[in-house]
């Protein structure tokens, strides 16, 4: 495992800081430098980070009530609901991209079903990416928060009530602080997932500046190993940082 994984990662980190092979002139700077120097690449990076951030925030906010209900409610069919949420998690990015296109592509289903022809074609580019990200972030956020919330001790809430707190106060002063780590963890996980999602970007954003696709291009198209390494490194590092932050407050 060490050989097969850590070594390549280390090598990757190093090559990001070195100039690429067989490069001349302008192109001979280290990949990591060029990543930030080139405006197109910068935009790709910015798009990736910003979009992932936004959708992660949105999904956590949207999914919190559902997560609470799943974790603490006692209604029949919870297991089924959980199963439904688990399914999209196991779909690879390409499929999710396809679903986005099927719904919102030039010939997608939603515009005709909802009689909103302006939606057609919105799949490609920012909107489609956002929708696709949402599609696999919603289950991830919901289930991550559910697990963390399920661990909330009912006894704590009851104790708060006996100490004289109204339901609203209990929610605000006891339940909410207990939720926060769960939300942070969910945010971290969803952010990392969408930042690195490749298959989706391939299908939906082939012509839109987004980092994973640029990474693919650098690697296979222009054979710019240093730039590719730089991009991969940035993705990996940002994801790792966010995950580590999320985990520390989530425990």
């Amino acid at each position: 495992m060490l050989a097969a994984f850590v070594w390549p990662l280390a090598r990757l980190a190093v090559s990001a800081f070195l100039p690429p092979r067989d490069a001349t002139g302008d192109d001979a700077r280290a990949g990591i430098v060029r990543l930030f120097a080139d405006s197109y690449d910068r935009r790709a990076l910015a798009h990736s980070v910003a979009l992932s951030l936004a959708v992660a925030l949105a999904s956590v906010a949207i999914c919190l009530p559902a997560a609470i209900a799943l974790a603490r409610g006692r209604f029949a069919g919870r297991a089924i609901l959980r199963g439904v949420f688990a399914l999209p998690l196991s779909l690879s990015g390409v499929v999710v991209g396809f679903l986005a296109v099927a719904m919102l592509g030039n010939a997608g289903a939603l515009p005709s079903l909802l009689h909103l022809p302006s939606l057609a074609g919105s799949a490609y580019g920012l909107g489609g990416l956002a929708v696709a990200y949402l599609y696999f972030e919603i289950p991830r956020a919901t289930l991550t928060m559910e697990t963390a919330l399920a661990a909330v001790d009912d006894g704590l809430l009851e104790a708060a009530r006996t100490l004289g707190a109204s339901p609203w106060q209990v929610a605000r002063w006891v339940f909410w602080p207990l939720c926060a780590p769960a939300m942070r963890a969910a945010f971290a996980v969803t952010f990392a997932a969408s930042l690195g999602s490749f298959g989706v970007a391939l299908i939906v954003a082939a012509r839109f500046p987004i980092l994973p696709v640029e990474l693919y291009r650098a690697f296979t198209g222009t054979l710019d190993d240093s730039l590719a390494a730089a991009m991969a490194l940035v993705i990996a590092v940002v994801a790792a940082l966010v995950l580590a932050l999320g985990r520390r407050s989530g425990r």
């Binding site: 990662l9 997932a193 993705i235 994801a239 995950l243």
Partner: peptide
């Protein structure tokens, strides 16, 4: 460890090395 690294980054790392 692989579970914490986004797939595409890991893939690139692997393929550059091997």
């Amino acid at each position: 460890l692989p579970l914490g690294v986004p797939g595409i980054a890991a893939a690139i790392a692997l393929l550059s090395a091997f």
